Simulated assay, not measured.
Amino acid sequence: MKEIISWNDFEKIDIRVGTIIEVKIFEKAKNPAYQLWIDFGELGILKSSAQITKCYSQTEILFKQVMAVVNFPEKQIANFMSQCLVLGVVGNDKDVVLIEPERKVTNGFKIG
């Protein structure tokens, strides 16, 4: 387990639900990945890079709702600016399984 954080630390993290509306193979990434465009409702469309190609095909994740941290600073990955961090469960083999709501909710809703 990592160090214990305070409730105030947790409240700084802005996790929202969004729907993946576009998926492209990230050809310039060092490791196999997708470029994602995610609709977060009132927050707009944010981009992310995700190394989820082992567990998901492009068609499988298109229109899937996911959870993401939306208040990190942008990060350049090769020639792509990632604007949010999609959340997933990382297994022992480093495969990533996306965390998603168990039923459809409104894009942009906060996790809390």
Rank of each mutant, 00 (worst) to 15 (best):
L43K: 15
A68W: 00
K94C: 11
G44R: 12
N92Y: 10
K54D: 15
S57C: 08
K64H: 11
P101M: 00
I111K: 07
A33S: 15
D9Y: 03
W7G: 09
G112I: 04
Q83V: 02
I5F: 07
S82R: 05
K110M: 13
G18M: 06
I25K: 14
M1R: 09
E42W: 05
E74T: 06
K24D: 14
V70I: 06
E74M: 10
K110I: 06
D93C: 09
K94M: 09
L62N: 03
L87V: 05
K54Y: 10
G88T: 04
K54S: 14
F26I: 10
S49W: 02
D14H: 14
E60K: 15
K94Y: 08
F109E: 11
K54L: 14
K64E: 01
V90H: 01
G88N: 09
Q76G: 07
K12A: 05
A50I: 01
K54H: 13
P32K: 10
T106M: 13
G112Q: 11
L87W: 04
D95C: 13
N31V: 06
I15Y: 01
I52K: 06
M1F: 10
E100A: 06
V89R: 06
L98C: 13
V90T: 04
F80W: 03
I4M: 12
A78H: 10
K30Q: 08
I25Q: 07
E42C: 11
V70E: 01
K75E: 04
R103T: 07
D95K: 11
K30F: 04
P101G: 00
M67L: 15
A50E: 08
Y34S: 04
K75D: 07
G112R: 12
M1G: 14
V96F: 03
N31T: 08
W37I: 08
R16H: 03
A78E: 14
G91C: 05
Q51N: 09
A78Q: 12
K24M: 10
F63L: 15
V69I: 13
V89Q: 07
Q65L: 11
W7S: 13
E11H: 08
E42A: 13
P101C: 01
K64M: 15
F80R: 11
F10C: 12
K30V: 03
V86M: 12
R103N: 08
D9W: 01
N8F: 07
D14S: 14
I15P: 09
V23R: 03
L36F: 01
V96P: 12
L43E: 06
S6G: 08
I20E: 01
N79L: 11
G44K: 07
V96A: 07
L62S: 02
V105Q: 04
I99W: 02
